[in-house]
Amino acid sequence: RQGFVPAAYVKKLDSGTGKELVLALYDYQEKSPREVTMKKGDILTLLNSTNKDWWKVEVN
């Protein structure tokens, strides 16, 4: 499932696989259909980080 999360809630990881991955630093509950819920410690695939406030991710 793809959607947006606050950029301040995730940290980029060095995956070494060519995929950009991020680590969820905090729990986040989606507040609109365009967002996704994540739990602290989740590893997500980063799809787009051009917006400084909201990053598009895919929940694996």
Rank of each mutant, 00 (worst) to 15 (best):
residue 18 G to T: 11
residue 33 P to S: 11
residue 25 L to V: 07
residue 43 I to Y: 05
residue 54 W to N: 02
residue 53 D to V: 14
residue 25 L to F: 03
residue 32 S to M: 07
residue 53 D to H: 15
residue 26 Y to A: 12
residue 18 G to W: 08
residue 59 V to N: 10
residue 3 G to C: 04
residue 14 D to S: 12
residue 38 M to T: 04
residue 22 V to F: 07
residue 33 P to A: 12
residue 44 L to Q: 00
residue 46 L to G: 01
residue 51 N to V: 05
residue 33 P to W: 10
residue 38 M to Y: 01
residue 44 L to E: 01
residue 58 E to A: 09
residue 7 A to S: 13
residue 23 L to S: 04
residue 57 V to W: 00
residue 24 A to H: 00
residue 53 D to N: 14
residue 36 V to D: 00
residue 38 M to A: 02
residue 51 N to I: 06
residue 47 L to W: 03
residue 35 E to F: 06
residue 19 K to G: 09
residue 41 G to Q: 02
residue 7 A to D: 02
residue 51 N to E: 11
residue 32 S to I: 04
residue 10 V to D: 02
residue 47 L to M: 07
residue 35 E to H: 06
residue 26 Y to H: 12
residue 53 D to T: 15
residue 20 E to I: 14
residue 38 M to D: 00
residue 36 V to A: 06
residue 40 K to L: 05
residue 56 K to N: 06
residue 24 A to P: 00
residue 26 Y to I: 10
residue 56 K to W: 15
residue 44 L to A: 06
residue 34 R to I: 11
residue 41 G to M: 03
residue 15 S to H: 11
residue 29 Q to V: 15
residue 45 T to Q: 10
residue 26 Y to F: 13
residue 13 L to S: 04
residue 29 Q to G: 07
residue 45 T to W: 12
residue 39 K to C: 10
residue 10 V to N: 00
residue 33 P to T: 09
residue 53 D to Q: 12
residue 30 E to F: 07
residue 40 K to S: 07
residue 30 E to W: 05
residue 37 T to Q: 05
residue 55 W to A: 03
residue 49 S to W: 08
residue 38 M to G: 00
residue 23 L to E: 12
residue 47 L to K: 05
residue 25 L to Q: 04
residue 10 V to W: 01
residue 57 V to Y: 00
residue 28 Y to W: 10
residue 22 V to W: 08
residue 58 E to P: 00
residue 1 R to H: 07
residue 19 K to F: 10
residue 30 E to D: 05
residue 17 T to S: 12
residue 48 N to I: 07
residue 42 D to G: 03
residue 46 L to Q: 01
residue 41 G to N: 06
residue 18 G to S: 10
residue 44 L to M: 13
residue 44 L to G: 05
residue 36 V to R: 02
residue 1 R to C: 08
residue 18 G to E: 14
residue 49 S to N: 10
residue 35 E to G: 09
residue 8 A to D: 11
residue 28 Y to T: 00
residue 43 I to W: 04
residue 22 V to K: 00
residue 1 R to S: 06
residue 17 T to P: 14
residue 58 E to W: 05
residue 31 K to M: 11
residue 51 N to H: 11
residue 56 K to L: 15
residue 56 K to I: 14
residue 42 D to R: 02
residue 7 A to Q: 05
residue 59 V to F: 09
residue 60 N to Q: 13
residue 50 T to P: 04
residue 13 L to I: 15
residue 45 T to K: 13
residue 25 L to Y: 04
residue 52 K to A: 12
residue 41 G to L: 03
residue 25 L to N: 03
residue 19 K to V: 15
residue 45 T to A: 11
residue 8 A to F: 08
residue 29 Q to L: 13
residue 4 F to P: 00
residue 19 K to I: 13
residue 7 A to T: 05
residue 2 Q to H: 08
